[in-house]
């Protein structure tokens, strides 16, 4: 039996189609992009905008910084307390077109030694955790492979 896939937060990233991307919103008045999405008021103090359009965020960016979780984070992070702790990376990605920095967990297998401030990374689909009924999906970050 295959489990249902559910996004960890609905509406924050695409769940179908070939081009996975984070989904933000753009204020139609001033152009400011919001992630997580903002849909009722604009946080630019000089803008009175109230209308927002959904926009896919850039799929590639550069590493602003990175770290890892050497210890198991507390709830509401979900993990199996009986499993040996495996550190995951946390990567801050600078998206040039949107003029913002967004955090993401590194894709499985990406360690801090694979990263450097300024290198190009891509935002890809990932799995946050699963339980008996569902696989909870999220976004991950991984270095763009250098093609030979």
């Amino acid at each position: 039996m295959t489990k249902d896939h559910k996004p960890v937060v609905p509406g924050w990233f695409t769940t179908s189609g070939e081009d996975f991307s984070l989904l933000g919103t753009r204020c139609t008045a001033c152009g400011t992009v919001f992630f997580p999405r903002q849909e009722t008021f604009c946080s630019n103090p000089a803008c009175a905008g109230t209308e927002f359009a959904e926009v896919p965020l850039s799929r590639r960016g550069t590493v602003w910084s990175y770290t890892n979780a050497g210890y198991r984070p507390p709830a509401p992070f979900v993990s199996d307390p009986d499993a040996e702790w495996q550190p995951f990376t946390i990567i801050a990605v600078r998206l040039e077109a949107e003029g913002l920095i967004v955090l993401g967990q590194g894709a499985p297998g990406v360690g801090v030694d694979d990263l450097k401030v300024g290198v190009e990374v891509e935002i890809v689909p990932g799995v946050l955790y699963e339980n008996d009924e569902h696989v909870y999906t999220t976004w991950n970050v991984r270095p763009v492979e250098v093609k030979a």
Binding site: Y66, A69, P73, S79, I90, T138
Partner: peptide
């Protein structure tokens, strides 16, 4: 899910020291 403090723990497992780690790494690189 509307509380950024809940989101960063649940979705990213980003503890306070994770942010300190990001800042520290910038100083190195």
């Amino acid at each position: 899910p509307d509380d950024p403090d809940w989101v960063r723990f649940h979705v990213l497992g980003a503890t306070n020291p994770a942010y300190f780690g990001l800042y520290a790494r910038r100083r190195i690189d």
